[in-house]
Amino acid sequence: MNDELCRSKVDLIIEKEQTEMTQNMNSIMAHHIIGYPTLEKSYEVVQTYIDSGIEILELQIPFSHPTADGITLTEANQQAVENGISLENCFEFYEEIKRYAPDTPIIAMSYLNRLFSYGIEAFCDKLSTSGVNQIIVPDLPFDSPVAEQINKHQAVQLVPVIAPNLNDERLSAMLNLQPDYIYMMSGFNTTGQQFELHPNAQKIIDAIRERTNAKIGIGFGISRGEQVKAVNEIADFAIIGSTLKIAIDENKIKSKLDQLLLNS
């Protein structure tokens, strides 16, 4: 599998330039749960994302009780846990994907207890040696004692997940951490529900833009091309999870990606 995954950097760059030239594409961060539906298939799916022109990857470590995910991703998490996906499998996955596409940024995603049980510092060390320097932890407030342990780590940065009810004080506290990426929930939903961009979203984005160059992604409930386009107009990228999971189940991943990526 390793050999297959390794392609030359030159090939990749040429391919990327070609796609950029021929089409005007949406920026997307594609979410995938490592080990769903199987570990083998996960490699295949994520490579398809990369080859189709996905800009950023959000690769989630499966958890038995994903408290902030909707029913679609909860099922996928549980399937992956049942498949026996270990943390070691996940770190290896990061390494392999990094080798396949060194220029595609990877953001790890995990619920807190998986980091905690491994040891926060050891986890961050391992993550960064696997080639990943960003992590989303949905149940970890960015200013809690455990978050401070991550923030202190030289090579790993916490990607804050914020919602349209973020007040000015919390916004400032968050920006003081100087994140490179910010994940914004489209509204008050869990993943996979109806998409609706909350009226406060624009205000918060403007406030962030005024003070940093952090890349802002918007996610939760995005399933159609128009929505991706709308999000691309106000943020740096759209985050897509549940819809892609459903596309995997229906074996329609390529056509779904085309729909979402084409900015026409």
């Binding site: 949905p138 407030p141 809690s144 997940v161 914020i162 919602a163 009810n165 929930m185 008050f188």
Partner: peptide, 10 residues
């Protein structure tokens, strides 16, 4: 502690 998604903080 309060290890919750930011959206629940308020």
């Amino acid at each position: 502690g309060a290890y919750i998604p930011e959206v629940l903080k308020p």
